[in-house]
Design a protein around this nucleic acid. Structure first.
Length: 912
RNA sequence: GCGAGAUUAGCUCAGUGGUAGAGCAUUCGCUUCACACGCGAGGGGUCGCAGGUUCAAACCCUGCAUCUCGCACCA
């Protein structure tokens, strides 16, 4: 026996229940249990970086997934939430390299060499990797940890390489020398998606070059990158530009490098449509080695390519003695100075332009010509077609479980995005899809399964027979492994016969929901859809929920560098995981960015505390005891011995047995409908409404709406009115009504705990047991857990009839509560001390049972509420409040000092 | 340039045709026997602007303004 403490203390509760769930195998999915009556539900977690730690973004994302998973379990589904981590190529290699450098172990990765460094990274991964998965447990995430995957697991790696070989054999993968985005910091190629455009302040330099054929005639060229002048191989103008037409085909002398004789610096003036008249001077310097557009001009005009930059962004000898060896940005300034000194610089005006930055290393990328592997995306058409577009014939906005289910059944192969506007973004990108540069000049990752010997090339899973073969040194883009996530994590092999025997794939693929951020819609979501079609022949998930981005109070994106991201673990320690979950969900409407404020977690904590105390109150009135000495069962400890996990499937089965035939399994039998008061019917009607709203909101993925509905029902309706009104019965003497009210409370709380469970798993489980809702089958005897209790259903017609709930069932009590509010207003208006008990007079519009009057009296904190006949006439000027229930008078005789009041009103009037 | 989203109370946001809502903040008052992580009562908004449709518009239509974010990009 223990007491429920006055305030809820999550710290003592959360770990206990998480261990309990784990021990009982509550999170493990078994394909053998899937059947027509027990459908499968699956989610593949967006794998966090193996080096990562939990951020607020993860909290948002994984709370939503956990809510979906827990709700699905309560709906009687077999749930697989598949967790894992991503090897995150560049990020992880950077972290480990940096750590080694800091520790003084190496100066450069070459000090260790490839094998040794990769071994170090594995070592590091084993030691520190997956911290984030442990942190997710603190949040309550109900992942099937027995299936945890890593993108570099041996089986997973085989999938990645197998897919490469398959695409190679299909002719979709090719190697070629192309202009790619090169990161001078990470020394690797990047895909277009890894480049972010940023505004950069710089200068637009205008400099002159002399036309060879017309000495004394000069062309002025505008450029932001004078350091690349030595790499220019032409000057281009628009063929229709009248200013320059006569010069086409003539030549100019390049301004740099100065140490090369003029004759060797002669380049042609060419005509190309790409040049715009009104930008700059209308004359473009063409640098095929260092600009994507220029490279294409170069191809069109067969221009030579001069590369003046090293991989790490320094000038080569070809840039001339003045610049050689300088960093590209230093060289920019230097070259401008040289031009100026030579009298060739007209002006340098401040200029803002967009420059591509490496997303990871945060340095400007260089367009660079290099030998890379590219992928022509597979299954593009099918992938484009399978996502329902807003406004299209097949698409209806989400509006409910039934309709949703019907829609999915009616549209095989269709996916839906929430919010649907992302479908347009997706469609747009798919429409202009470009080949994907998949090779990376890194060591940490899946090595490209291609070997070379002289001019021979071999692509396969294993090194070819024979001597002299060397494997391609590059690894694959991390996303080239992530795009297989939904099925590679389920043990997919690519071998048809083998996969046909895979029960997990059969039961759980395609997954039901994907929850992720819109920032990786191209990186990940689109590519997974294509991979799904290409290798599984169908979509990888049915619904994609795009979360918003977590921002701070000022609307800034939360980031490590800004230091504006609170540590979720600190918040959990301070407020509890439930509070964090509830707060974040409350603040996160579908598809909207979340302005996060710690206050919202505080609110969540307050909410949990309120729930805790509402249950404490039920315990107190149930035992007739005082709150300070409650002999209750909360705080109880589950038994150590784990019972047969299969028993959990029978959870709440015993609940069904004791019901009248007319009621569903959710309904408690102890309620005697004949004894229900107006308040009881009111709260039951409101509960019914809340069940409808919450269920609907969840079907629409509107979690903030769901929490708002729950908040309103529990706090503003159940606590503020029903519980308060119930005190009239509990402090009264009618034992029969008292018992019935307890039954109603149990009924409401039993439903509430279930409705809250997906959002607040810990406190609800604690109370479910502490309140004795699992008493039919105590946990330590083989146990029920709230996790598998059935999701509440809105009342059926029979149930409504049983409780006497018609459309107006809640109106009497509602009118009563409204009148009470008005009455309290009267007290205030009359400046009556709240502590003072006063006498109200009630002239009811119809019949009003004495019990109802008692409730009014209690809620008004009145000394008496005298019920008078319709003919009763109040003293002139008596304050009155009226509604459909009747008129409530507050006779002031003896309460108010009229003279003082008159004076007060007088001064107030003057003021106005 | 193309596209999307936003604009409602001091703040953050709900609200898709019928008398303006929530939480927080704020004011006043309460150690009322579940809860001060609480209770009660208030104050506060011509719903960005201008037209239009309608008996009726925060909501539908058309412009405009401002902000945010994608995509593309001119050296």
């Amino acid at each position: 026996m223990s007491e429920i403490s006055k305030a809820y203390e999550p710290q003592s509760v959360e770990e206990k229940w998480y261990d309990f769930w784990l021990k009982h195998g509550c999170f493990t999915a078994d394909p053998a249990r899937v059947s027509a009556t027990r459908p499968a539900y699956s989610i593949a977690i967006p794998p966090p970086n193996v080096t990562g730690v939990l951020t607020m973004g993860h909290v948002l994302n994984n709370t939503i997934q956990d809510i979906l998973a827990r709700k699905a379990r309560m709906d009687g589904k077999e749930v697989l939430w598949l967790p894992g981590t991503d090897h995150a190529g560049i990020a992880t290699q950077n972290v480990v390299e940096k750590t080694l450098k800091k520790a003084g172990e190496i100066k450069h990765r070459d000090d260790l060499g490839r094998e040794a460094l990769v071994a170090k990274i594995w070592e590091w991964k084993e030691k520190y990797g997956g911290i984030i998965l442990k942190q997710l447990r603190a949040l309550g995430a109900s992942c099937d940890w027995s299936r945890t995957r890593f993108t570099m697991d041996p089986e997973y790696s085989r999938c990645v390489q197998g897919v490469f070989v398959d695409l190679y054999n299909k002719g979709l993968i090719y190697r070629g020398k192309r202009m790619v985005n090169w990161c001078p910091a990470s020394l690797t190629a990047l895909s277009d998606e890894e480049v972010v455009m940023k505004e950069q302040k710089g200068f637009m330099y205008h400099f002159r070059v002399e036309v060879v054929e017309h000495p004394g005639t000069f062309l002025t060229i505008a450029t932001t990158r004078p350091e690349t002048i030595p790499a220019d191989t032409a000057v281009a103008v628009n063929p229709k530009d009248p200013r320059y037409q006569h010069l086409i085909g003539k030549h100019v002398i390049k301004a740099l490098p100065l140490d090369v004789p003029k004759e060797q610096r002669v380049i042609p003036i060419i005509a190309d449509e790409h040049v715009t008249f009104d930008f700059g001077t209308g004359v473009l310097k063409v640098t095929p080695a260092h600009d994507k557009a220029d490279y294409e001009i170069g191809l069109r005009h067969k221009l030579p390519v001069i590369d003046v930059l090293t991989p790490d962004g320094k000038m080569t000898a070809e840039a001339g003695a003045d610049l050689a060896g300088l960093d590209r940005f230093v060289a920019r300034k230097r070259s401008a100075e040289i031009l100026e000194a030579a009298g060739a610089l007209d002006k340098a005006e401040p200029y803002v332009n967009n420059v591509g930055f490496s997303e990871r290393a945060d340095v400007p990328i260089e367009p660079r010509l290099s030998e890379q592997w590219f992928l022509k995306y597979p299954s593009v058409e099918a992938s484009k077609a399978c996502v329902a577009q807003p406004g299209s014939a097949g698409f209806q906005p989400a509006s409910g479980a039934t309709e949703h289910a019907a829609k999915m059944a009616a549209l095989p192969g269709q996916m839906r995005f929430f919010p649907d506007r992302w479908a347009k973004v997706y469609d747009h990108w798919m429409g202009g899809i470009q080949d994907w540069c998949i090779s990376r000049q890194l060591w940490w990752g899946h090595r490209i399964p291609v070997w070379y010997r002289g001019t021979e090339t071999y692509c396969g899973l294993m090194a070819p027979e024979g001597a002299g073969w060397t494997q391609d040194p590059d690894v694959l883009d991390t996303w080239f492994s992530s795009w297989l996530w939904p099925f590679a994590t389920m043990g997919w092999t690519g071998d048809k016969a083998e996969d046909a025997k895979n029960a997990t794939l059969k039961a759980f693929y395609p997954t039901t929901d994907l929850v992720t951020g819109p920032d990786i819609i191209f990186f990940w979501v689109a590519r997974m859809i294509m991979a799904g079609h290409e290798w599984m022949g169908e979509i990888p998930f049915r619904n994609v929920y795009f979360t918003g981005i977590i921002r701070d109070k000022q609307g800034r994106k939360m980031s490590k560098s800004l230091g504006n991201s609170p540590d979720p673990l600190d918040l959990i320690a301070k407020y509890g995981a439930d509070a964090l979950r509830f707060g974040v969900m409350r603040a996160a409407p579908l598809g909207q960015d979340v302005l996060f404020d710690e206050q919202t977690v505080e609110l969540g904590r307050n909410f949990c505390n309120k729930l805790w105390n509402a249950c404490r109150f039920r315990q107190m009135v149930g035992t007739g005891g005082q709150a300070s000495s409650l002999p209750v069962s909360a705080g109880f400890q589950p038994a150590d011995e784990a019972p047969d996990p299969a028993i959990r499937l029978g959870a709440c089965a015993s609940e069904v047995a004791s019901k009248p035939a007319v009621l569903s399994e959710d309904t408690q039998a102890e309620i005697d409908p004949a004894l229900l008061t107006a308040d009881d019917r009111w709260v039951l009607a409101r509960l019914d409404q809340a069940i409808r709203e919450v269920t609907q909101a969840m079907a629409d993925y509107k979690f903030s709406d769901a929490t708002a509905a729950l908040y309103r029902f529990f706090w503003s309706e159940y606590c503020d009115w029903y519980v308060e009104a119930s005190k009239a019965a509990f402090y009264g003497s009618d034992e029969k009504h008292k018992a019935n009210k307890l039954a109603v409370m149990d009924f409401v709380l039993g439903h509430l705990l279930r409705l809250f469970h997906p959002f607040l798993p810990f406190i609800t489980e604690e109370l479910w047991h502490g309140m004795g809702f699992s008493a039919d089958m105590p946990v330590d005897q083989g146990g029920t857990t709230l996790m598998f209790a059935p999701w509440p259903k809105a009342f059926s017609a029979d149930e409504k009839a049983y409780f006497g709930l018609d459309d107006t069932a809640d109106q009497v009590a509602q009118a009563k509560y409204d009148l009470v509010s008005l009455g309290r207003g009267l007290r205030r208006d009359c400046k009556i001390d709240p502590a003072k008990k006063v006498k109200f007079v009630l002239r009811p519009a119809g019949d009003l049972p004495p019990a109802e009057v008692e409730v009014v009296k209690l809620l008004l904190n009145a000394e008496t509420v005298e019920v008078v006949a319709p003919g009763w006439i109040p003293e002139k000027g008596t304050p009155v409040a009226a509604n459909t229930l009747g008129e409530l008078f507050l006779p002031l005789t003896g309460l108010v000092d009229y003279a003082a009041e008159r004076e007060r009103l007088g001064t107030e009037l003057e003021k106005i």
